[in-house]
Design a protein around this nucleic acid. Sequence first.
RNA 1: CGGGGUGUAGCGCAGCCCGGUUAGCGCAUCUGGUUUGGGACCAGAGGGUCGCAGGUUCGAAUCCUGCCACCCCGACCA
Length: 490
Amino acid sequence: MAKFLTNREENYSQWYNDLVIKADLAENSAVRGCMVIKPYGYAIWEKIQAGLDKLFKETGHVNAYFPLFIPKSFFSREAAHVEGFAKECAVVTHYRLKNDGKGGIVVDPAAKLEEELIVRPTSETIIWNTYKNWIQSYRDLPILINQWANVVRWEMRTRLFLRTTEFLWQEGHTAHATREEAMEETMRMINVYADFAENSMALPVIKGYKSENERFAGALETLAIEALMQDGKALQAGTSHFLGQNFAKAFDVQFTDKTGKLDFVWATSWGVSTRLMGAIIMGHSDNNGLVLPPRLAPIQVVIIPIFKKPEQFSAISEKVVKIKKDLEARGISVKYDDRDNNTPGFKFAEYELKGVPVRLAIGPRDLENGTVEIARRDTLTKQLISIETITDHVVNLLDEIQKNIYTKAQTFRKENTFYLDKWEDFTRVLDEPGGFIMAHWDGTKETEEKIKEETKATIRCIPFDSPEEEGKCIYSGKPSTKRVLFARSY
RNA sequence: CGGGGUGUAGCGCAGCCCGGUUAGCGCAUCUGGUUUGGGACCAGAGGGUCGCAGGUUCGAAUCCUGCCACCCCGACCA
């Protein structure tokens, strides 16, 4: 398990924060619980956005944008929804400041809003208030819209990427004529997320249903993907909600079906956030820093020259320019680090910290021998390759690294997933080594809450692929038909 | 909001208990030189309202009071 990036080894949280800051991804801002995403970190987010956006378009969705502010009255229309979000809302009460006459400024009491505005913690309400005007007939359906946005949730405790006060995300909001179609959409999108997590982020996930306790506020069914982090905790990496007719009823969105009958519209919503970056960081990093999957790495290949004299440098640069061009022609992003104020060793360490998948080094010896030193971030191994074949080699290697990172994470998950039947094993495993626990559950809220109280573990999901089998609830001993996924979580 | 901890140069810290020269160290920065195949070295230089506001004292980074911010643990959560 990766743990010792700094001398603060006793604490995985600090290790994580340290890594985020040192790898130049983000830092805390002056605003409570908010973060500054730095250019290198944001470049990863842009890769994530591009990858997801492509998948959304392939599944028939389009992008749109809705307001940041939500009138308080909208918010309160859906009872469960307001219940779920009320305690973490930022509220706008005034629209103007004025001089206090002492060189400072104060909120102008004359500029009090008649109705307060909520800074969106999620957009169901403002969007369904809009959809009301867009939908009259079954011919107006389905509506398949996604929005890329920022949202604000005033959490008590925050953590870079994992739980910030403001975060970036996408939220899909769809409207359908039938229950079946909406449920299909809910399922389709959790599969899109799972594909992205596994293929692009190289992170294996478990798809499943949330228990009633863990459902989104206002949803009839919440589907989720759950990933295992290297410290043995689970991370909810994405959710897709079947909202039934709850929001349509709250906002009075009815349509005329083919037979001329009025009915309420069926809804889904689904989202992933900058938390995905936290998943990549905690899922793959090692003691040398970040390990980025090639498909999401802003820099896939870094080239470092090694030289003593200016003549050597120009001879190396000449070769590098060609290699860079060839690689870029194959769609690979390459950085040539020709700074002369850092030694090669410093640069090696720096790009390892930043998780760049492949590093090439070229020095006088290579010029003589017609070779390039190629090092891979995932295994930290290096070898000499003929300069003639370097392009093909890199292309293949990036693929191999992508696969290897996934396999490594998968092996880790396998080794840290436990099928347990005894309560004493359950508590023991949670403390050391942690991880995923597959255990029987009697299906009741009461048992789930008791387990949470006693162990801090929750039901992460009821996996789709959990086979039917006879068993007894690990806590109550009552009969159960399948195992569910328990873990402590972020 | 409860418990613990920390605020001293861009970053990381020592000094505080036991008040007293000019507030110090490492990294980073700048200049010059030597270096460069795994986080270079030497010499020199610049950079501080010691978190903020009061108080005690001849004298406060150090003691006292209040406030603020951040971090960790809990409750809450994508």
